[in-house]
């Protein structure tokens, strides 16, 4: 009889562990909202743009920006081709700091928010240097917020 009770206790513990693991995301998130990061697109440089267009459509930039940067890197470093032309004829310098970061001059509120949310840790800034934000830009950027969508 005693062994049987021990067995039932073991089964109980086992099932409890299983349920705890299987429902982990639920009670980990319990009571807390998991807000989607709001990406700040309101930098002075973006506001000054005649049309709010990046080097590729937003959907593509969302999913493929790392691959575009990788292609740019190869083109510049290895092939010496520094100018990028979009299908609609706009030309850009293939440069993370001189092109991307000129518009998106708010790394913390643009790059980092999304990367933190998705648990991504890019190595760009091990070598490249985050351009300094011109003074006054930070406060201007807070005023109006955009989201990724």
């Amino acid at each position: 009889m005693k062994g049987r009770r021990g067995g039932l206790i073991a089964i109980g513990i086992g099932l409890a562990v299983f349920l705890a693991l299987a429902t982990y995301p639920f009670w980990h998130a319990a009571g807390k909202a998991m807000p989607v990061p709001e990406l700040d697109l309101e930098t002075p440089a973006i506001r000054a743009l005649p049309a709010r267009l990046c080097v590729a459509p937003t959907a593509e930039m969302k999913t493929r920006h790392m691959q575009i940067l990788d292609e740019w890197r190869t083109e510049v470093v290895r092939n010496g081709r520094r100018t990028f032309e979009t299908p609609d004829g706009r030309r850009f310098d293939r440069s993370l700091t001189r092109t991307c970061m000129q518009c998106h001059s708010n790394k913390e509120r643009f790059c980092d928010r999304c990367h933190d949310y998705a648990g991504v840790k890019p190595k760009c800034w091990d070598c490249h240097i985050v351009p300094e934000t011109p003074s006054g830009e930070a406060s201007a950027a807070v005023a109006g917020k955009g989201t990724l969508k």
């Binding site: 995301p25 980990h28 959907a59 998705a118 969508k149």
Partner: peptide
């Protein structure tokens, strides 16, 4: 065929916070 991770996480957090959402993308 890259996916928008933010949308995926939004969907997943919809399940676990019991507020089902269907993000774009």
């Amino acid at each position: 065929d890259k996916i928008d991770l933010v949308a995926v996480k939004e969907l997943a957090s919809g399940w676990i916070c019991f507020v089902p959402t269907l993000p774009e993308g």
